[in-house]
Amino acid sequence: MPQGLSRRRRGLIGGLLLALPCVLAGPDPALDPERVARGELVLRAAGCAACHTDPEDPEAFLAGGRALETPFGTFHAPNITPDPEHGIGRWRVHDLDHALRHGRAPDGSAYFPVLPFTSYTRMSTEDLAALWAYLVTRPAVSRPNRPHDLPWWLRWRGLATLWQWLYFDAERFEPDPKRDARWNRGAYLVEALAHCAECHSPRTWLGAIDEGRRFAGTRSGPEGKPVPNITPDRETGIGRWSVSDLAYYLETGMDPDGDFAGGLMAEVIDSGIGHLPPEDLEAIAVYILSLPPIRHAVDSGSEDQRDEFD
C-alpha cells in the first residue's frame, strides 16, 4: 500500500474521530424545531417585531429600524438578527437573559426602559431559551443600526443605571393560586410578554409607569399619540367589551363597532399577538377585563381628564 494513501486514510480517520462527538450529540438540542416554534410564539406575544422591524422595509425582519419617539428623545430599535457585526450574532443566551430580564447590555451598561425589560423580567426561563432558539435561527441581515437621537444629558448611560436603581427590580412571574389557569396564562402574557401596560399607562416625569393608573391609557404614548384606557371602566375604558370582543380585536384588529386598529397597535396585531392561538387571546382578554376599572379619559376635550405629567 503506497505510503501516501495510508497517510490520507489516517487523516480521514483522524477527521472522523474529531467529528464523532458532534455526530453523537446530533443537532444542538437548544435549537430543536419544537423549541424554535415555541420561540416564535414568544416573539409574537412579546411584540418584538413591531419595534425591531422597519415598517417601511418589512422584508428585513427583525433587522431594526423603527423610530420610537418618546418625550425623552427618539430611540431607533436595533438589529436583533444573528448578524455578527450589526445584530446579536456574537451574543450568547445569557446576554439575551441579561438584556431582557435584567435590562443590561452585554458590556454591563444599563438599557433605558424603552426596551420593556420592566415587563420581560417576568419571562420564564423556558420562554427565554425558546426565544433565543428562534432568534439565532433567523437569517442574519447585515443592516447597520441607527444611533438614538437623544438630548445630550441622556446620552450618558449612567442615567439609565440610576433609573433602574430607582424603579427596577428583576423578578419572576408568580401565578396567583386563587385564580384559574386561564387567568394566570393571561396575566403572564400581558404582564411578562405582551407588555401592554408599557404603552397603555401614563408615565411620571421620570418616565416610570404611574402605577395608580396602570393600563388606564395616556394622552401621549409612543410617537406622541394617545393610547386608550384598557381597564374595564364602562365610560372611559373598555368595560362594555366582552371577552369575545377583546379576543376578536386582538386577532383581527376590529373593535366591536366595526372600526379598525391603526398605527402601532395595528403593527402589534399584525406582526405580534394576532399570531397567537385563540386560547391565548382569550386568556389575555379574561385577564385584561378582570383588572380594576379606572376612570381616565385620554381623548382631549373630556372633562374626566386628570392631570398627567406626560
Partner: peptide
C-alpha cells in the same frame, strides 16, 4: 370575512391618522 377585515385594516394603517394627530 377575515380577508375583507384585513383589507380594511391595511388601508387604515397606511392612510388614516390615529386620533388627535
Amino acid at each position: 370575512f377575515k380577508g375583507l377585515a384585513d383589507a380594511c385594516k391595511a388601508c387604515h394603517k397606511d392612510f388614516r391618522a390615529e386620533e388627535e394627530d
